[in-house]
Nucleic acid binder design. Structure first.
Length: 361
DNA sequence: CAGGCGTGGCT
DNA sequence: TAGCCAAGCCT
């Protein structure tokens, strides 16, 4: 059965969240703002996105400005947000939209653009263009699974949930306010219909929710058990010259951390390798190191990616003034950190063992 | 089409 | 601590 959309919209009118990319009540949102925010919000929480969104908008006030910027400038602003393919696609999409002259206004045409899939195309269509469609993200999947008491685990149940969700706006009240209805679903999922401890007692849809009736809301949606996360190991070298610049190299443009800068070092291997002091000075070992040096052990960095854990041993050295070590360009070049594209994991590696703030007392 | 692809906050 | 998972897309 179709839930009463007017109940949800009434709740939304009273509890609507104010967000930087949201239009004021009754106003039409800017498609560029909606698109930019939706790309950033893919698998990323609102609180994390807000400062990135603000920085992007001040650097690139229009989609044309974003299209004409060099990719590295986009990547540098994106650095730390993760899923760097989003930044590449964002840039490519901006160029496509700039060519077209404006954002496409249909789900079908939006979905042809890089980085815009089944969810984002519907989110933009609904929010920016007021087209009656239901964007199915994690929030809407959860709401739908609970309303219908779908017990089959994700991700296998995804097609079923998408089919059920597509009927959430069958109600004429939803058709009358497509933009608000989509955002109301997000707000409901983010506040009352939350993953843990849902607030069913005050939910606008409490009367029609099968999961609430069966006292199983919190358990839904069920998820398939995840595979264990493997661990990989690496040794990275932090070499700082007398000007304070760091030896950095660029990662391949696609793949993990694509296009970001990294400290040179060993491949990221399944095997842990702890060199002895003698090995640290050996040529055979230093083929992974840019130079032979007196290495200082700066400590270990643990970083958890989505599909593996990385344990990094960081060795550091500071070069004396006027030193002229021959360094193979494959290891990188000395760069001021200000201009680097630094992922979070590399920021950790740059900071580890710096002891810049001694504990008081 | 299952898996690659980041990060941080929460319990 | 270790696991969970968030406004997904791409291949």
């Amino acid at each position: 059965m179709t839930p009463d959309a007017s109940l949800l919209l009434h709740w939304y009118d009273r509890h609507r969240r104010t967000l930087p990319w949201r239009a004021a009540p009754g106003q039409q949102a800017d498609p560029y703002h909606v698109w930019l925010s939706e790309i950033m919000l893919q698998q990323t929480v609102v609180q994390t996105v807000i400062p990135y969104y603000e920085r992007f908008l001040s650097h690139f006030p229009t989609v044309g400005a974003l299209a004409e910027a060099p990719l590295d400038e986009v990547l540098q602003l994106w650095a730390g947000l993760g899923y760097y393919a989003r930044a590449r696609n964002l840039h490519a999409c901006a160029q496509a939209v700039h060519q077209l002259g404006a954002f496409p206004r249909t789900v079908e045409d939006l979905q042809k653009l890089p980085g815009i899939g089944a969810y984002t195309s519907r989110a933009i269509a609904a929010i920016a263009f007021n087209i009656p469609t239901v964007p199915v993200d994690g929030n809407v999947e959860r709401i739908t699974a609970r309303l219908n008491a779908v017990e089959d685990p994700l991700p296998a149940s995804r097609p079923l949930l998408a089919r059920l969700a597509s009927h959430l706006n069958d109600d004429p009240a939803a058709q009358a306010r497509p933009s608000d209805f989509a955002q109301a679903l997000f707000d409901l999922g983010a506040s009352l219909c939350s993953p843990r401890s849902p607030s069913c007692l005050t939910c606008p849809w409490r009367e029609c929710c099968l999961a609430k009736a069966r006292n199983m809301a919190e358990a839904l949606p069920a998820r398939q058990k995840k595979k264990p996360r493997p661990t990989r190991h690496a040794i990275l070298f932090r070499i700082i010259n007398s000007e304070g610049n760091v030896l950095l190299r660029s990662r391949p443009p696609e793949g993990l951390l694509g296009g970001t800068d990294e400290l040179p070092g060993t491949p990221w291997s399944e095997e842990r390798f702890t060199p002895s002091p003698a090995q640290l000075a050996e040529t055979a070992f230093t083929q992974c190191a840019p130079i032979q040096a007196q290495w200082e052990d700066c400590g270990e960095v643990k970083h958890i990616f989505s599909h593996f854990t990385l344990l990094i041993r960081v060795y550091g050295c500071t070069l004396p003034e006027k030193s002229n070590y021959p360094i193979d360009p494959t290891h990188g070049r000395f760069r001021p950190l200000k201009k680097a594209i630094l992922s979070s994991v590399m920021k950790k590696c740059l900071l580890v063992g710096q002891h810049h703030k001694p504990v008081a007392g």
